[in-house]
Write a protein that binds this DNA or RNA. Structure first.
Length: 263
DNA sequence: AGTATAACCTGTCTGC
DNA sequence: TGCAGACAGGTTATAC
């Protein structure tokens, strides 16, 4: 579910919790921990120092420890408990419930000092909106025969894009998703390089894309679904040229594109 | 080393 | 109404 814009929207919605006191941790579903974090998690107490984001991961920093959370496909952070609550963080005066029907969400509890060594974070590639997001670095990751759409989904190369935004970014740049990444001209690569942060910025401004389960921390739907050009629009007409949007499969996932606008 | 498939889960929708 | 099958925003393990 949540890609960079959704996770960033959630992070911003939680920023007001920074400085608050965590009084109790309730683990409703131990599977959430995936063996990565010990059960001592339930003893965690103290002030929440900072909530940050890396790719699609949320990082909650406390004095000595940190929680690293990936929302998987259907994870949400809501102010109330529900049928699929897997974890509850009790803060003074307020609680935060992780709701996740499909249970693909994952949580790690580690010492803050070990954050930089945590595999899932360490493996992540270039991060949009940071100093490392340069055309030089972007060009470098394109030097592979892999299909460009699949490359964009590879978190080790570029962190944060998921299926919706990978499809949309390629449409905006006018690039066919089946093209080998290394076949892109510098001009095409530049278009894609620039389209990605612009797209993500617009999606964040709209509070993300709600197809079905994603909600902001206040339980609201995002609004960016209204602006999607190709994702989920198979058979419908391209908003730019009128010809039908096509759906194909790449690495077992749906790819949507306009065969006449994306060459 | 890179790639395809399966696996992890549950819900929803479509067609018969 | 029931049931099978497809599909869903994600990642990781395993088998070639």
């Amino acid at each position: 579910m949540p890609e960079l814009p959704e996770v960033e929207t959630i992070r911003r919605g939680l920023a007001r919790l920074e400085g608050r006191l965590l009084t109790q941790v309730e683990v409703r579903d131990p599977r959430l921990l995936r063996g990565c974090a010990p059960a001592e998690l339930v003893r965690l107490r103290g002030h929440l120092k900072e909530i940050s984001r890396r790719g699609k991961f949320l990082i909650f920093k406390f004095d000595e420890h940190a929680l690293v959370l990936h929302l998987g496909m259907t994870g949400r952070l809501l102010p109330h408990e529900g049928r699929y609550t897997r974890l509850v963080l009790h803060f003074s005066e307020e609680k935060l419930a992780l709701d996740d029907p499909r249970r693909f969400a994952a949580l790690c509890y580690i010492r803050a000092a070990e954050l930089d060594e945590l595999g899932p974070l360490k493996r992540l590639g270039i991060e949009p909106f940071t100093a490392g997001y340069t055309f030089k670095n972007f060009w470098k990751i394109l030097q592979t025969k892999q299909e460009i759409k699949r490359l964009l989904l590879d978190q080790r190369k570029l962190a944060g894009l998921g299926n919706i935004y990978a499809n949309e970014a390629l449409f905006r740049a006018g690039i066919n998703p089946l093209r080998p990444a290394s076949s892109l001209s510098r001009a095409e690569a530049k278009r894609l390089f620039e389209a990605i942060p612009r797209l993500l910025e617009e999606a964040i401004a709209a509070q993300g894309t709600t197809i079905s389960s994603y909600r902001t921390t206040t339980g609201e739907s995002g609004r960016f679904q209204e602006f999607l050009q190709v994702y989920g629009r198979a058979g419908e007409s391209c908003r730019r040229c009128g010809r039908p949007i096509e759906r194909i499969e790449q690495r077992g996932r749906s790819t949507y594109f306009c065969p006449s606008c994306q060459v």
